[in-house]
């Protein structure tokens, strides 16, 4: 295995016009401190503040904050390979799936590939048009399918309030947290997680701790869990944790854990301590609840 840290991959799904590009523009301009690589379908739709653009080179935009934005071409998976081979390797890869794509088919690559980490599937749901799209005889099944695989659902165009019937329909399809994009002060914590890029190995400071709307929780210890016990513990995590990641010691070597919404991904790793960070919305969870739950790990 490569000595480089794994490249986390987050996939943004959602139909045409749902607001995926707006979300990416937002992400790229936020002060998240990470060097993100964003791959999009339609380069022309990306509309970054000109002041942020350092260099435009063919189909790659380099930003002053160290992020890059590029097109993926006709072979998405080989483009993933290019991102992995890029030096320095980006801190996080974000892919905009095409409007009709099943984002899980892309995100699954992060679970399969030893050099990648699962960063989850965020599906942008068009608050105005989704119910109509979901009932469309031609594309309805694919629209509902996107919601079914989401780890987090981000609703756009709500006009300030999530329509209850929309929330009910989405909840019937998905266990993923449902967030109104208008309510989110920052999108990076939801899309990337709350840590600085070297968070797992090093510091535990990050965006989550910096913004009052989010709760960040970090833990370092020496607890050792067998894989089944870890899986059971994670399965019993409190609702309201959107993301959790870290290294957990186990009798057969350390495990790297990525939890996004309802999805749990575990891979072998190297670490000399157990270090975990989690993030949720302050309105839904507090640090004490997370700490109390994790205390079961030592029990």
């Amino acid at each position: 295995m490569s000595a480089l840290p794994r490249l986390p991959l987050t996939v943004i799904g959602g139909y045409l016009g749902a607001g995926k590009t707006t979300l990416l523009n937002r992400l790229l301009s936020e002060p998240h401190g990470q060097k993100i690589m964003v791959m999009v379908n339609d380069f022309g739709a990306i509309n970054i503040d000109a002041a942020l653009i350092e260099r435009a080179d063919g189909d790659t935009l380099s930003l002053t904050n160290g992020c890059v934005c590029c097109t993926m071409g006709n072979d998405l998976f080989m483009a993933l390979g290019d991102a992995l081979d890029r030096r320095p390797r980006p801190d996080h890869l974000v892919i905009e799936a095409s409007g009709i794509a099943d984002p899980a088919k892309i995100a699954m690559a992060a679970r399969a590939e030893p050099d990648m980490a699962y960063g989850g599937i965020a599906v942008v749901v068009d608050g105005e048009n989704w119910p109509k799209l979901a009932d469309d005889p031609l594309i309805g099944a694919q629209m509902r399918g996107q919601v079914q695989v989401a780890d987090v659902l981000l609703v756009s165009k709500t006009g300030g309030a999530l329509a209850p019937n929309l929330a009910v329909r989405l909840a019937a399809l998905s266990r993923a947290p449902l967030l109104d994009l208008a309510d989110l002060p920052q999108v990076a914590p939801v899309l990337l997680g709350g840590m600085a890029p070297d968070g797992v190995q090093g510091g535990l400071q990050g965006v989550a701790a910096d913004h009052p709307a989010y709760v960040g929780w970090a833990h370092e210890g020496a607890e050792r869990l067998e894989r089944p016990a870890l899986e059971a513990l994670l399965a019993a995590r409190p609702a309201g944790i959107y993301r959790l990641k870290g290294h957990v010691l186990s009798p057969d070597g350390a495990l790297e854990v990525h939890v996004v919404g309802p999805t749990i991904d575990i891979k072998p790793a190297q670490s000399d301590s157990t270090r975990v960070v989690a993030i949720g919305l302050a309105s839904q969870i507090d640090r004490e609840t997370i700490a109390a739950w994790w205390a079961n790990a030592a029990a």
Binding site: L76, F77, M78, L80, G81, L84, K105, I106, A107, M108, A109, R111, A112, E113, P114
Partner: peptide, 9 residues
């Protein structure tokens, strides 16, 4: 492709 990609790479 997701499962095949690490092999193809």
């Amino acid at each position: 492709m997701a499962a095949m990609f690490p092999v193809m790479r």
